[in-house]
Structures are given as structure tokens and as C-alpha cells.
Nucleic acid binder design. Structure first.
Length: 498
RNA sequence: GCCCCCAUCGUCUAGUGGCCCAGGACACAGCCCUUUCAAGGCUGCGACGGGGAUUCGAAUUCCCCUGGGGGCACCA
């Protein structure tokens, strides 16, 4: 096999979403695995849908995921420019070439005519669909055989034509897909699609073929939804006399809500649950890039019968097309959550604390790095997403706790017992060194002395100190809060029990 | 409507003719551990869509049906 050169070619019409990121990831993995070149190309040929901020979003999101490109925007390369809008003369040249060689023609049909043509075809019922009607799919080839004088007349009337490909009227076009085998379609199923628009911009079909050839792309890995247009591209390669790249169509990602493929917009399930779709949303929702990377690598590809957690390096090492699935896959948010928790737990305390800090700030919690580092071990095993750190530690930052005093009286306890727990603890805590390890033995002994179960004794203390039934480990929490605050909160609790 | 693709537990998947009365993971349930919650450990629940054919033997090959998905723009 020649040099491996693959590309991810998004169009800047929106933010980078999970499906696009997955396609990009597979190309990146493939390139890195084979020591090939990974190219980022921007397909900005649709001026009407161009969305200014999407380019920076795509670039930032890919960088965040760690998907770096060898050629493309910001890094350049020998096959640039990597923005199709800057390559217009090239497409126009090749369109003219196709016209000259008899493989394409100029079409002068108005948008109105095409529109009514489509509507007429859609309205036709199967019964009405005579041979004459059904033999035409899409454009009716009205301009395919215009004479020179007809063309001259239309030209002089000021109509700016588009260029359409002359698709063979019969026969079939086939290609070999690396993960699906041979795929063939009858040529009569294809219409004479547009190559060059009247504004001088190419359509996806032309630009894609011209650029993949010019950039010496060896493999095209893209979503399954492109299968129907692949034969069109093959016809073009043939018309140019070029050899098409190798194709591998990836399974699409299905929406977790159960209908259709995953869209680019935010999804809301029937139960009201909201699903992130854009990479930037996963980021701000507190997902780790390494977790999302790992997860995305496994949607549509598998390593073996048991491995779920893969480092970036292992994924590069192991990636192959043989284990790319053919069937579409639903995006499992539950599994992503689980995986994100796994990755969070694997992080070193200081690393995790560093990632948590901005989330505290974003939530309006004024906290210094040292405190974050002290809290991190307490909450590391309790987080699914980085954003969870705020809710997990909110009781640290309030001046006053609000809770039902009844909670101080744990199951099976009397109010007298609860009062004793608080008063005895208060006395004890005045003289105990306020570090986690030193706090535990005397308190535990006190619980036993009072004839209380640990869950009762510490349950009462937990409510008094954190105001919550569910909280991080008590002794570590007390150490961070400090003697003064802990004693004050216990005093408050005692007052509540009077 | 026409064309194309796909089909193993609820979900993601392993499986490339005998190793499979189908393995792993998420989710779910139970138990253990335990100062709560988590985390962790153990156990359980749970699938080859249907019908034909090929074969000594089929989840694995072929055909039909059904179901799901995608495409049919001067969008990508």
C-alpha cells in the first residue's frame, strides 16, 4: 500500500458534534496506527449556510480531544490551501475539463423549473408513474443534449449556467467498501447532478473528488450516509481518468432518543432528559477528553471481547478496519458517564484538582487551589462528571446550614442520646488534633462508650456538621472545615435540639 | 415512491462453520464491605427477528420476509 493519507473534512455550518468527532477520530486513529498523514480540510463551499463561529469551534474541539492534524488550517502543508473556498479556480478548471471531454455539460434550467419538476415527481402516485415518468429520477436532463445554437441563445440571454455531470444512461457503477464489500448501483438510479453552482462554487461532489485526488488521499473513512453518493464520485474519478481512493463507510451514530441518526441539535428524550451532542457541551458538562476519546473510539469499533478502557496509545496501536462494525450504534450516555467516572478516579489528586478548579469558579465558588486539592480526595470517588464537585462540596461554603432538626435523631435513637452525642463530641473535639487520622479513634471510642452504632453516632454528627444525610467522609470533611467551624455547627445543632 | 445499507441480551459489543445450551461492558436487582453516599467485590436477570436452503454440523454461508437506518438539493 502506498502512503496512508486520510482526512476529516467538516463543513463549517455548525459546531462539532459527536458524530463528526467520531468520524474524525477513526481517521486520526487510522493515520496514527499506520504512521500516515492526517489532514483537516474545511469544506466551506456553501456560502448560504456558512457559520462564522463554527470553524473555531471545530478547531478547538478537536484540539481538546487531542486530535491533531498534520496538514490543514493553522498548520499548513504541501497541498494547501485547506479551505475549499480558496481553491475555486481549481474546481472551475476541472469542470471545464469535464465539459471539454464530454463528461459534463452546462445546464440553464431555472430554480423554478427544477422545483416544479421535483414537485411533479413527488405527486405522481405509483399508478400514474408511467415509464416516461419513472425513467427520470431527479433532474430530467433537459439541457443534456442542447445544440450549440440553443446554448448560444441561452447564454446571450444572460443566464448563468451550472455544470452537471453526464451520468451514463445504463450499466452500473460499483465500488469496493473495505468494511462492507462490493456495493453496486444501477446508473439509471442517478441523475445528472450539479458539479459547479452558478455562483462559481463547486458542490460537495466536485470539490470532494478534486481535492481528495489533489491531496493524494489514500482512504476515505466517512459515515454510512455517504454510501449513496459514492458511485457518483466513482463515475467522476473514471471521467477524469483517476484512480479512486479506498472507501470505508462507518456506521452512523443513532440518537439515544430512539428515532433516527443523532442530530446536530440538543436532544431531549421523552422523559425530558437532555443529551449533549456538541463536543463543547460535553466539555462544559464536565466530561474528560480522555474519557470521551475512549468512548468515541468504541462506538462502531471494538478492540476485543472484554476491553473497555483504552489509553490513547493503546487505541492507536490496536485500531484496525476489521473490527469496525457495519451496523449503526446508539450513543450510550449511561456508558459514557460510567467511563468518565472511571477516568476521574484514575486521575492523580493534583491533576484532578487542577481540572476541578475552573468548574468551581464557573459555578461562582470562590476557592483557592490548595483547598481544592484538599477536597479532591474526599469527592474523587463520588463524581461522574467534573461539574459534580460543586454540589458535593456546597456545605463547606455556606455560613448557615439548613436542615430538619429531626434528622439529628438517627434511627433508633432518643433525643437525649442525640444531645449526648453532640455535647460529648464537642468536648472531645476541643482537645483533639484536627487531622483526619487523629479524629477517628476517640470519636469511635465515644460511640462505643455511649452504646451507639457507628451509623447512629456518626449520622448525628454528619447532619450537624454538613447538614446532609449524604456527604463525603466525615473525618476528612472535619479536617478541612477546621475546629472552629465544626464546633460552631455542633453548637448550633445542640441548640436546635433544645 | 425509488435506491442503498444494516440486523447477537434494554444498550454497546465478542463471535469470520464445530472451542457457543453464546463471552464481556453499561444499565438494572440482590448480597458483601462500610460512619452516609459513592467506589470496590460477588451473584443474578437478560440476546443469535421469522421462514426456508446449503452442511455431518450454522449466531456464523445463501435466498425470502419482517424490522431498523440512510439517500434521492445550484447542502455537506
Amino acid at each position: 500500500m502506498a502512503r496512508i493519507r486520510v482526512r476529516y473534512a467538516p463543513s463549517p455550518t455548525g459546531y462539532l458534534h459527536a458524530g463528526g468527532a467520531r468520524s474524525c477520530l477513526f481517521n486520526w486513529l487510522f493515520a496514527r496506527h499506520h504512521g500516515g498523514t492526517f489532514i483537516l480540510r474545511i469544506e466551506d463551499t456553501d456560502r448560504t449556510r456558512f457559520y462564522k463561529s463554527s470553524l473555531s469551534d471545530i478547531v478547538e474541539s478537536l484540539r481538546w480531544l487531542g486530535l491533531d492534524w498534520d496538514e490543514g488550517p493553522e498548520v499548513g502543508g504541501p497541498c494547501g490551501p485547506y479551505f475549499q473556498s480558496e481553491r475555486l479556480p481549481l474546481y472551475q478548471k476541472y469542470a471545464r475539463e469535464l465539459i471539454a471531454s464530454g463528461h459534463a455539460y452546462r445546464c440553464y434550467c431555472s430554480a423554478e423549473r427544477l422545483k416544479s419538476l421535483r414537485e411533479g415527481q413527488r405527486a405522481a402516485t405509483p399508478a400514474q408513474n408511467t415509464d416516461a415518468a419513472s425513467s427520470h429520477i431527479g433532474y430530467d436532463r433537459h439541457c443534456r443534449e442542447l445544440t450549440a445554437s440553443q446554448r448560444a441563445e441561452l447564454e446571450s440571454s444572460g443566464i448563468v449556467p451550472v455544470v452537471r455531470l453526464k451520468v451514463p444512461l445504463d450499466g452500473q457503477t460499483a465500488f469496493h467498501d473495505l468494511i462492507r464489500g462490493r456495493i453496486a448501483i444501477q446508473n439509471e438510479q442517478m441523475d445528472d447532478f450539479v458539479l459547479l453552482k452558478s455562483d462559481g462554487f463547486p458542490t460537495y461532489h466536485l470539490a470532494n473528488v478534486v481535492d481528495d485526488h489533489a491531496m493524494e488521499i489514500s482512504h476515505i473513512m466517512r459515515a454510512d450516509e455517504w454510501i449513496p453518493s459514492t458511485p457518483r464520485h466513482v463515475i467522476m474519478y473514471n471521467a477524469f481518468g483517476w484512480t479512486p481512493p479506498l472507501y470505508a463507510h462507518l456506521p452512523v451514530i443513532l440518537s439515544p432518543t430512539g428515532q433516527g441518526k443523532m442530530s446536530k441539535r440538543k436532544l431531549v428524550g421523552t422523559d425530558g432528559r437532555e443529551y449533549n451532542v456538541r463536543i463543547r457541551e460535553f466539555r462544559s458538562a464536565g466530561y474528560l477528553p480522555e474519557a470521551l476519546f475512549n468512548f468515541l473510539a468504541l462506538v462502531g469499533w471494538s478492540y476485543d471481547d472484554k476491553t473497555e478502557m483504552l489509553t490513547r496509545e493503546q487505541a492507536v496501536e490496536a485500531f484496525d478496519l476489521d473490527h469496525v462494525s457495519r451496523s449503526p450504534a446508539k450513543f450510550s450516555y449511561d456508558k459514557l458517564d460510567w467511563m468518565n467516572g472511571m477516568y476521574i478516579r484514575q486521575l492523580e489528586v493534583n491533576d484532578l484538582a487542577g481540572r476541578l478548579h475552573p468548574f468551581f469558579n464557573a459555578a461562582g465558588v470562590d476557592i483557592d487551589m490548595e483547598t481544592v486539592q484538599r477536597m479532591t480526595p474526599l469527592i474523587r470517588e463520588r463524581m461522574v462528571k467534573l461539574t459534580d464537585c460543586v454540589a458535593l462540596t456546597d456545605f463547606f461554603f455556606v455560613d448557615e446550614l439548613h436542615y430538619d432538626p429531626q434528622l439529628l435523631i438517627q434511627k433508633g435513637m432518643t433525643s437525649d442520646q442525640s444531645r449526648r452525642v453532640l455535647s460529648e463530641s464537642e468536648a472531645l473535639l476541643r482537645e483533639t488534633e484536627f487531622v483526619e487520622a487523629a479524629l477517628e479513634p476517640p470519636l469511635r471510642a465515644k460511640a462505643e462508650e455511649l452504646g451507639l452504632k457507628a451509623r447512629q453516632f456518626f449520622g448525628t454528627l454528619r447532619i450537624a456538621i454538613t447538614g446532609r444525610e449524604v456527604a463525603p467522609p466525615l473525618f476528612g470533611t472535619m479536617e478541612i472545615l477546621g475546629r472552629e467551624k465544626v464546633l460552631a455547627r455542633i453548637a448550633t445543632a445542640r441548640a436546635l435540639l433544645q
